[in-house]
Design a protein around this nucleic acid. Structure first.
Lengths: 224, 224
DNA sequence: CTTTTTGAACTGACTGGTCAGTGCAAAAAC
DNA sequence: GTTTTTGCACTGACCAGTCAGTTCAAAAAG
């Protein structure tokens, strides 16, 4: 395990708070960071973190290399914040789906189904991010390991919460293993969606959703 | 300025035949390749392909760097053959489970269940390989992409075959989407097992298997 | 049985190239 | 006036792949 002598240069984030806003309301800096995220996510999804160079990221983002280091302390920090950002979006989306189902007074099975759909929508929108997330999730000995752990848990916790509520109100068997079942559900959606994107992208989201719903509700065996 | 000893015989590596066998019956070469696979699989699972150096692999295998290149044309070729080797084991194991269930005249649901167990056994035995496989599967633009595609298809085809047979004999609904359902099942097992290994390795395989069986058979909703 | 030869397998110092990160002055944006 | 971006030269650690040379067990020769 070797670590390059970083000798870190202090990123000048000392500046006063959010500076002026552009017409859109976002700071200029924020817009640059966004462009860098977008460039990094596709490149890293395709090639992996180590095989992707900072020069490539800068070029794809249409920005000078120095800008990358003006905005992020290092390549790994850029990646780490990208992970945080992406999983944050997913978690918010899952939570939203679950709450919506709740507010509409539907059952926990419906909530689960809504979350499956939310997951599919997310993956359809950010396939590269998903790919990269899966590739990194079970790695050990990487700098961003602990960060990843935390955000993963936030996302999975949403699913576990719905399962637990369902057990509590009798909708689900109290013999289910919440943690394992949550992982299995996430895996089901993740892998099915990634396969969908990779091998039959022409299919509709509804189609994929229907197949997963059927599996979830045990309507696989049995006729018709 | 190092001066190398002159005076030497030319190696002339023209030979092609498998040389003598050691006591075990395996050639020495085969044993070395096996050691290199084992070293490479853990390192690459932990750090990824690009972040793993050939020097590390050689060191972990207790072999000189030159030996790696004596046995494999390049780092990627080593990795590619490792993938082929590993997925080959998995496919054989799945096929075996399916055929055993068939021979014993059990239904396709049981065959599926047996394959889930076979998958879990495989992952318990080769967690690093599984991890590395998942990390690489959906990447694009990588040298070994096509190889991976082929072996993946071989493995998934086994699951798809059982599903198709089940639809044919009426055990499964003819409305299921074979391809998607197979992917979802694989994902369910993969992710649940990886989570099991990573976050609660103390649990037994039977335990995990039971949780997945329950999910498969739709015994999640409904009480008891 | 003993000595010599053979060559596949292995070794590790070395090379040529790559890439993260630096430094900084000038320009642009705000 | 301040913040952010640019452009580009520079450094040095790092690493895939090479190759001259060594090892050793088994085959051939004596």
């Amino acid at each position: 395990m070797k670590i390059r002598h970083p000798r870190a240069r202090v990123p000048v984030t000392i500046g006063t708070m959010e500076s002026s806003t552009t017409s859109g309301g976002r700071t200029r800096r924020e817009a640059t960071r966004q462009k860098l995220y977008e460039a990094a996510v596709t490149l890293i999804a395709e090639q992996g973190f180590s095989a992707t160079t900072v020069d490539e990221i800068a070029e794809r983002a249409g920005v000078a290399k120095g800008t990358v280091y003006y905005n992020f302390a290092s390549k790994s920090v850029l990646f780490e914040e990208l992970l945080r950002h992406g999983v944050g979006l997913l978690t918010a989306s899952l939570r939203d789906a679950a709450e919506r189902a709740d507010r509409e007074g539907r059952g926990k099975v419906d909530a689960l189904d809504a979350m499956i759909r939310a997951g599919l929508v997310f993956i359809e929108r950010y396939p590269s991010f998903t790919q990269l997330y899966v590739a990194e999730l079970w790695r050990t000995n990487r700098a961003w390991q602990s960060t990843l752990m935390v955000v993963r848990q936030e996302a999975v916790a949403v699913v576990e919460g719905v399962l637990r509520d369902g057990v509590a109100n009798g909708e689900f068997s109290d013999e289910i293993d919440v943690q394992l079942t949550a992982a299995a559900l996430v895996g089901m959606v993740l892998v099915a969606a990634l396969d969908w994107q990779a091998f039959q992208p022409e299919r509709s989201l509804d189609d994929v959703h229907a197949a997963l719903s059927r599996l979830l509700q045990g309507r696989v065996s049995g006729h018709r």
